[in-house]
Design a protein around this nucleic acid. Sequence first.
DNA 1: GTCGTTGTTGCAAGAGCTTGCAACACGGAC
DNA 2: GTCCGTGTTGCAAGCTCTTGCAACAACGAC
Lengths: 154, 154
Amino acid sequence: MTSTTQTDPWGSIRDLLHDRGMRWTPQRRTLIEVLSKADGHVGGADLVERCRAVDPTTTPSTVYRTLDVLEDLGFIRHGHGADGREEFHVLPTRDHGHLHCGTCGQTWELGEGEAKGMVDGLRGARGFLVDLSHVTIVGRCADCAALAEASEVD
Amino acid sequence: MTSTTQTDPWGSIRDLLHDRGMRWTPQRRTLIEVLSKADGHVGGADLVERCRAVDPTTTPSTVYRTLDVLEDLGFIRHGHGADGREEFHVLPTRDHGHLHCGTCGQTWELGEGEAKGMVDGLRGARGFLVDLSHVTIVGRCADCAALAEASEVD
DNA sequence: GTCGTTGTTGCAAGAGCTTGCAACACGGAC
DNA sequence: GTCCGTGTTGCAAGCTCTTGCAACAACGAC
């Protein structure tokens, strides 16, 4: 259904694996199928569940190990959400972090531009190279901050 | 032994608890004893273990629940380390985040000043109030970056 | 001192993720 | 087509942390 094979970035995985002496297995096919349909961010347990929907015999260890491999190949990146759970970014075209509101639970993307000040500052002052994609900044969003202020008259 | 009661911030806990209708239990005493000896940052499992050293009957659920209470009272704050595990900051006198090198595993404190650019930017642009203490910025420290560059001639 | 209320505890189960290990199967050689 | 080496898989166990629930005990009332 609407196969966009022409620019399908996942099409090259099989060859990439072979080039590295790695194998193309049904289990990996399943996970890649799931990932190709999941844009944006997905939790680890979430992926396991979706793989099970495709192939009920899927086991967590295989999924997490395959995710490691795919991260090595650059197809995904992992970070940790506000609660510390793993979160995977599929096809990270640009470097971005995350902003999470601890009150309402919503999450937004944090662009390179917004974090530039800190990233550049840390590189300059300490030579530290920030890996933005791994970062989730926690705090309180504008809406929740406004609500909190309004109810602070109790 | 060497009781520094005069400025002991932990001395007020019992009263604070009572004021809130909460109780002063041996289990809480144990955890507070452990915390008062642990400056800086401690992992959750680490605290459970140290509590067991004081009182072998300690159970994890009690420790984690007590930590919640203490966070409510402002005696500690929790964040998540680079691997997503919980990390507690004892007596957080000033707002600070963490810098973690994914290569060598070292961790540094991230002062308010260093993050100011981003924090102010996010507040200005989106009204988002960053909770610095919850943040661990992952990346590569100067030393590891230099080493990586040197070995990139393979 | 004893009593009763109710905040706490400990247990057990479970979620999310990791790791060691023996058996399996991909894929190149023939 | 068959064979074989080794990368992978699935299982089982374990770690970290959470949650529901019944029994317990801190502490104010008397």
